[in-house]
């Protein structure tokens, strides 16, 4: 399935700096499947998150989001809860790559401090823009490079490779 490159609108969940993958996918729930990780996602930082987040919501975080381990379950837990995109002032490289590879849009935006918890936000990872509908403001964001846009549009690395293999036959 191809994700059409259109902007993503949702409600913001505001998080701080240096949210590590161990907060998104807690080690104590390892080897029990993504649904269990999802149920406990961010429970040390935002205990209400997993219960109250709705499909289509957005995570808006500060610097170095997704630091720490290489675990993709950090991305999968967010996807499982229906988080539609993550906006952060900066990402840790492993989380950034994992998100693209799993088809979760990620956008770097230096002005996340202008976004408050609960704001309605529109994210355009293709054009590189974040609009805050609640405050009626627009912020510049980094547009994804061509090859990453292609991966994201395909829905992640596996569908992208599938397509490439099909095309080369």
């Amino acid at each position: 399935m191809t994700i059409h490159p259109k902007p993503i609108e949702g409600r913001a969940w505001r998080l701080g700096d240096n949210v590590d993958t161990g907060q998104l996918a807690l080690a104590e729930y390892s080897a029990q499947g993504v649904a269990v990780y999802a149920r406990h996602c961010l429970e040390h930082l935002r205990p209400e998150f997993a219960a109250e987040v709705r499909p289509g919501d957005l995570v808006v975080a500060g610097e170095n989001f997704g630091s720490g381990s290489s675990r993709e379950t950090a991305v999968l837990a967010l996807k499982h809860l229906g988080v539609a995109a993550v906006v952060a002032a900066s990402f840790a490289r492993l989380f950034f790559r994992n998100a693209i590879n799993l088809g979760l849009p990620v956008v770097e935006c230096k002005e996340v401090a202008r976004i408050a918890d609960g704001d309605r936000v529109v994210v355009d990872p293709w054009r590189g823009q974040v609009d805050n509908l609640t405050r009626q403001e627009s912020y510049p964001a980094s547009a994804l490079p061509e090859h990453l846009r292609e991966l994201l549009e395909a829905g992640g690395l596996v569908p992208w490779l599938e397509r490439r293999m099909r095309d080369s036959r």
Partner: peptide
């Protein structure tokens, strides 16, 4: 370090 899906790409 890389993620598991990235690894899948490397394996294939």
């Amino acid at each position: 370090g890389i993620g598991s899906t990235e690894m899948l790409g490397v394996l294939v």
